[in-house]
Amino acid sequence: MNKSVFFGALAGAALAGGVASAATLDDVKARGKLNCGVTTGVPGFAEPDANGVWQGFDVAVCRAVAAAVLSDPTAVEFVPTTGKTRFTALASGEIDMLARNTTWTFSRDVDLKFEFTGVNYYDGQGFMTPADLGVTSAKDLDGATVCIQTGTTTELNLADFFRSNNISYEPVPIETGAEAVQQYNAGACDVYTTDASALAAQRANFEDPSAHVIMPEIISKEPLGPLVRHGDNEWADIVRWTLNALITAEELGVTSVNLSEMGGGTNNPEINRLLGTEGDLGAMLGLDKEWAKRAIGVAGNYGEIFEKNIGESTPIGLARGLNAQWTDGGLIYSPPFR
């Protein structure tokens, strides 16, 4: 609590103070900490562990940005936000960036005035039902009771899907994933719908995962990515290219293991540009030469982060699928570093 500022504000001294809209980068540097908005908890994507340290796929993006800007991946203040509060938290400047399972949509980009800086996970809304119901397609769900986890674009996609297929359903909106799963397991709803990644994560933790099937239909496009406020393009560039650096690193084979070795210089000019041994891309961003090297050094490249947090070896057990590199037939694609 900044006492004197508060008292000053109350005394009206700040009446005269004009809007000094400093650049976010300067703010972050002056503060020495990055304020990063995350969820209140989604397994694998953002959750505090038993020691209270935030872990997860989205969290890794925050840490990479902090490492690039502040040279310290732990200099992040994680601000938990709910679906309701995330946009105001960002708009009001409480957080510098939001890395929270947020779907890139037209209205959020244009109407709410945010800048999506890329996509770190391509998701889509799916359905899960108990196997013994014998349903094989979401189109057979006429009259079903559907548990929806609210707070995303889920409700809208669902309404559109059932409307366009001309079948009826009964929506049961639930606030948190845990409560939705409880209802689903007790049979209070026939179907549970949310992002397919979350479905897979929840199913992996059921008592008997094989008793539940995920429908083949994916009814929506959910490109999830970090976002920042409109208007501060320099800051948006930093977040965008930090994410791109992680992706490019995987494409070029830069990993946390060989990072220091490659940081000494390689034959591949793009790796050199990325890691700052050739040219000075960092200066264009207002950072130093080794920004990307530090970002990659936190938890490795995009693929490593994926495997560690939500990959097939974790309880979440997600396959790369759409989130494979474009060279492997996925959608993960970074513009070139030059």
Binding site: K84, F87, S107, L112, T150, E155, P173
Partner: peptide, 10 residues
């Protein structure tokens, strides 16, 4: 709830 979430008009 949902209207706030969808429109962002807090």
């Amino acid at each position: 709830g949902i209207t706030l979430l969808q429109t962002g008009r807090a």
